[in-house]
Simulated scan of single mutants.
Amino acid sequence: MKIIKYPTDFMKTRKEIKGKVGFVPTMGALHQGHLSLIKQAREENDVVVVSIFVNPTQFLPGEDFEKYPRKYEADRAVCERVGVDYLFMPDVKDIYFDDEARVTAPKIKGYILEGLNRPGHFDGVLTVVNKLLNIVKPDIAYFGKKDAQQLYLVKKMVRDFFLDTEIKECDIVREPDGLAMSSRNVYLSEEERKKALLLSKSLKRAGKLIMAGEKKCDVLKKAMEEILKPIEVEYIEIVSRDFEKIDEIQKENSIILVAAKVGNTRLIDNLWV
């Protein structure tokens, strides 16, 4: 495995890489969710690139940028073990510049749900993903479904900017108890972790109701609200896969999303229907 720090060095190396390239962009603190993306990239490509970059522009003031888990040595070892070919680990000063051109999120769908209380968050996400895709120039880039709105906006940006990369959506990976894997799970105390399971339990409840024939979104949301009462819910929303609000479940075109705070930790989860 080759570790590359500077964007200019990677761009030079990229010209020499032959075959199909799969790319997994991450902020590090790698867990089984990330490894599932890397595994899929390994199976589907000749060359696998992973980036580790804790992106400051997607964190709002007061969010956890400074304390976001950084496990660079462990992450390097994991990447080498699972067969990554290139590990790209740039510094902030080499990714961002003074008075630079920026990518901005769509004015509607970038400012709902995750973007509503985090204005500018998706500007930062899309800006860094755009930079990384232009540096790595992958044939396929792999993103998890847990960050569903991010996934939608990245796919939209790639389409809108005519970028020559396929964005592949990958299933959520969960702990044995049902908790969606996240680098932020390490913040949870033992008691908070038990409460965090209410997110996945509420989604399971909605899924069972749908299997029983329920389609009305307000009924599904009320059932979820009952389960989520012990924690601080930010939103429960049901949308189409292009993030339009819907009143009834559309088969194979709906996403049920939930965001909540458990202690000081903000968690998200979803169910693709």
Rank of each mutant, 00 (worst) to 15 (best):
L133W: 09
V92Y: 03
L113Q: 14
K71M: 14
I135S: 12
G124K: 03
D98W: 02
D91I: 00
P56I: 11
S51Y: 11
A101V: 11
T104F: 12
V78L: 15
P119Q: 01
D98I: 06
F53C: 03
K71I: 10
D91R: 00
D99P: 05
A101E: 13
I52L: 12
S51N: 09
V82L: 10
V125A: 03
D99F: 14
D75W: 09
Y68M: 04
V78T: 14
G120I: 01
Y68K: 00
H121F: 11
K93G: 00
A74I: 07
N117C: 08
Q58L: 06
D75C: 07
V50L: 11
K107E: 15
N117E: 15
Y111L: 12
F53L: 05
L126V: 05
I52G: 13
C79P: 04
A105W: 01
K107L: 15
L133P: 05
D123V: 05
T57K: 13
A77F: 06
R81H: 07
D94Y: 10
E73V: 04
F59C: 08
V48E: 10
D75L: 08
P56F: 11
V48L: 08
F97P: 00
D139E: 08
N130I: 00
L113E: 13
K131M: 02
R118N: 07
A101D: 11
E114T: 08
T57H: 09
V92P: 02
K71L: 15
P119T: 05
V50Q: 10
D139Q: 05
C79A: 02
K71H: 11
F97C: 00
A105R: 00
V78G: 05
N117G: 14
L116R: 14
E66V: 02
E100L: 07
V82W: 13
F97V: 02
P106D: 15
Y86L: 12
G120A: 07
R81N: 07
M89W: 06
F88M: 05
R70L: 07
A105C: 01
K107Y: 15
E100T: 06
L132S: 01
L133V: 07
K137Q: 15
A77Q: 14
G110S: 13
I52M: 13
M89K: 07
R102V: 14
T127Y: 01
G83R: 11
V128F: 05
P56A: 12
I108P: 11
I52A: 13
D139N: 12
L132D: 06
V103H: 02
L132Q: 05
I95C: 13
R70P: 04
Y72A: 09
G124L: 07
S51C: 09
C79Q: 04
R76Y: 08
